[in-house]
Design a protein around this nucleic acid. Structure first.
Lengths: 160, 160
DNA sequence: TATTGTTATACTCTATAACTATA
DNA sequence: TATAGTTATAGAGTATAACAATA
């Protein structure tokens, strides 16, 4: 998924396509806005050789030293098999280590290395800076309202 | 992408993983919320044998009769090659037709059939109903604020 | 030469089934 | 039996290069 959504400049000759019906859906607006956020994130993480998934995994491991792969998969809302290659990559780059858990020799305790924590610091700072720029057009109260609304939507699934 | 994000019930024995750092990012919240919205959309469209992409294409064709494939690809923000299979599927199901454009015999004018318009009506109604349910926890002013903020974020890419 | 639609191809993300080694 | 991690595999969504037909 190269996912760069290249910006086409508006071609002034062709008639514009109406997406009025779709615009009335919050889901459609969320997808379009999220595409922009994700493209920005991808570009921001590229200098660190991280993708959204490797970044997310690294952050969660730094913040939760010793967690198991199955816990991490749960937290990331992905299946265990799909986490394996992500962890493989982070381990190969010596950003994290897989420690055997003495009390349960089936499991691995994941921990970040010093290099991993240093990359974490730089990547989190870069993503923070880019988000500030991306949200520059919104005041703090609006952002707070949006975050709150997103939480309500995220939790809405359990009611269904 | 089966993408059902199965709800795991909280396991009360295991320690909970902290995602405090990630929660501070709007992008992370948007992804988690959008996953819920997309899962709901997928489930809503399943009875109509539509996916998000085929649904989006059908809506845009009904709303913009006669548009070209390249225009539709632009509107959907996907590459032309990826649209071909989507249009193939809609045409095979006789929801749309590809009419040759007399003035430019390279291009196709896309139009919905009666069956396509009927499916459109039913699908749009179903999606609308599900969105109302999904947003039940939010008042109208909040939804309006969120929609406005999403538009600002979507447009923010052009400033970068 | 440039554009429209197409084919072929590859990469990423996701899901399921089945295996191993432990418990 | 059940669980943790793994392997193999398949299906979506996306991107690029190259082609034929037409402009």
């Amino acid at each position: 998924m190269k996912q760069e959504h290249s910006r086409k400049q508006p071609s002034p000759d062709k008639p514009t396509i109406s997406d009025t019906t779709l615009r009335s859906f919050v889901g459609y607006r969320m997808k379009r806005a999220f595409n922009v956020v994700q493209d920005d994130l991808t570009a921001t993480l590229r200098p660190f050789d991280l993708r959204m998934l490797t970044y997310t995994a690294l952050v969660l491991i730094v913040d939760n030293p010793g967690l198991r792969q199955s816990q991490l998969a749960d937290a990331m809302d992905i299946e265990r098999p799909n986490l394996v290659v992500i962890i493989d990559e982070l381990e190969r780059r010596e950003l994290i280590v897989r420690d055997r858990v003495p009390t349960d020799r089936r499991a691995y305790a994941l921990r970040a290395t010093l290099v991993g924590r240093q990359l974490y610091d730089k990547a989190v700072a870069a993503v923070t800076a880019h988000e500030v720029e991306l949200l520059a057009g919104l005041d703090n109260a609006t952002v707070a309202t949006v975050l709150d609304a997103l939480r309500v939507i995220e939790k809405a699934r359990q009611r269904s």
